[in-house]
Write a protein that binds this DNA or RNA. Structure first.
Lengths: 150, 150
DNA sequence: CTAAAACCTAGAGTGCGCGCTAGGTCAAGG
DNA sequence: CCTTGACCTAGCGCGCACTCTAGGTTTTAG
């Protein structure tokens, strides 16, 4: 009946998640699943839709820069059953902050890059040529560590 | 007079840019500077403020995900003198698009993560416990490749 | 029943962006 | 002069997140 999304072999999970079968086996070796993936009589992995859903979330976390080690921590918290929800929440909140900070940094970089683009567009348009590669409209203040304080 | 920001040894450039001396030598080996860095009689590198400015821009490009190889292309274009400004512009524009795309992706991930955070906050507040780790309020549509089409 | 396709394990290899070590040389203060 | 610390080259090593290979087994379509 509902065997369309249940009892999935690794190839279907690969399709469903966009991950390679290598990556899926790697994830298992690294303990990133929420359970032991059961095997068929012949030793082949049999996934369920819930595993796919978890992988999809993992992909979001990875895409937003969470390292494998942190995903593993999160998976371990979930595997160790109820009772540690505050820890899980803290982990997610910290990552949320990291992502927001990354976005802010990228926005700042984007500003610098766009400034350069505009300069080059002007130059290409009317054939000027002067210090084109200069880093931005500023030359004397040597402070560039954390560009966007808030 | 202006020897405060001119004739800089590698240590001062390291301070000024936040890069390690290893990274600065690596950059030179990889041909990422806009010129040959001159040496003192004893073979030590002597940088100018313009080199620091370029490095600061490089750091912005790196921080926004531009690989070393692309920075090298850009540096080569600049080194080969005027005449290829449209190429430089194209390179910068492409990177600008990449950065914008990355920001959009991160925003999408942030949305998913924040949803999870809210769910956990609710749960932690009133002691519920049901499918907490589920990827998002959706279970049946298996499409998650390029999350933010535009 | 057979052949092809999918799957298995163990382990080695890859690309990036540096980091670090070894074994020295050079420059500035006392 | 001598010490100290910054600097030099050459090149190996590392951490991450896979990716690929080799050699074999299982499943499935015809």
């Amino acid at each position: 009946m509902s065997e369309d999304t249940e009892n999935l072999p690794i190839g279907r999970v690969s399709e469903a998640t966009g991950m390679s079968v290598h990556a899926l086996r790697f994830f298992e070796r690294e303990g990133l699943f929420l359970r032991e993936i059961p095997r068929s009589g012949g030793g082949q992995r049999i996934y369920q839709q819930a595993d796919v859903d978890w992988l999809v979330l993992c992909n979001r976390l990875r895409a937003s820069g969470m390292p494998i080690a942190t995903i593993r921590k999160f998976a371990e918290l979930i595997r160790s059953g109820p009772g540690n929800e505050p820890d899980r929440l803290a982990l997610l909140q910290e990552h949320e902050q990291n992502v927001q900070a990354k976005i802010d940094e990228l926005q700042a970089c984007l500003g610098v890059i766009h400034t350069k683009v505009v300069i080059y567009e002007q130059h290409v348009q009317d054939g000027t040529a002067a210090g084109l590669w200069a880093p931005a409209p500023q030359q004397t203040s040597p402070q560039c560590q954390t560009p966007v304080p808030r």
